[in-house]
């Protein structure tokens, strides 16, 4: 099977056997594609292009169908993401509590726009439309933790905590575990 070697970030390190096992494990259940994609995303942080033919073959659907599903959903990035994923809520209830200035602060502090990753690979910044924390906005989600009443100062502290606490000695060009 052809695996796109051009995709330097994914081609070589793709846990190919693991993906095949994952596809086989979900195959029998009704509507297996989203559970498979979530499983890959949970492990790698994104869906490498090279996973597409493996999934297509496993489920006996076309690559176009797999690609169509991946590209439809905001959760499924197709490029590697930072070690931390920061989502800033942009929806109305958070707007009423100042999220427009919070998102400007996040972009300025990290020096990136939405859907971008900081050059050191620490943070990927994403918009999110509602975290269901609307009585205590503005809210952000940093990885799996949701934070409420986030002021610019509190956001700085959260970002600081995320970079200084774990794995500060990790080499810059680290690879996804396989």
């Amino acid at each position: 099977m052809h695996i796109s070697a051009q995709d330097s970030s994914a081609g070589a390190d793709l846990p190919r056997d693991w993906i095949q096992v994952e596809v086989a494990a979900h195959k029998a259940k009704p509507g297996p594609l989203l559970p498979i994609l979530h499983s890959i995303r949970n492990r790698l942080g994104y869906i490498p292009e090279a996973a597409v033919p493996l999934i297509a073959e496993g489920l006996q659907i076309t690559r176009a169908e797999v690609h169509g599903v991946i590209s439809f959903y905001h959760d499924f990035n197709t490029h590697p993401v930072g070690r931390n994923r920061l989502q800033v809520c942009r929806a109305e209830a958070c707007q009423a509590r100042g999220c427009r200035s919070l998102e400007a602060h996040a972009q300025e502090t990290l020096g990136i726009g939405y859907h971008q990753t900081t050059p050191d690979g620490e943070f990927t910044l994403e918009p999110v439309y509602c975290l269901g924390n609307c009585a205590t906005g503005p809210s952000v989600r940093l990885n799996d933790d949701i934070h409420g009443r986030v002021t610019p100062k509190r956001l700085d502290a959260l970002l600081d905590q995320a970079t200084t606490q774990p794995l500060t000695l990790q080499p810059l060009a680290e690879e996804p575990e396989s």
Partner: peptide
């Protein structure tokens, strides 16, 4: 997977089916 439209019942069903 982060799509607002999937709260619409027929989109939800397509999404549940893996589309």
């Amino acid at each position: 997977a982060g799509a607002y439209i999937c709260g619409e019942e027929t989109s939800l069903l397509d999404s549940l089916e893996g589309k």
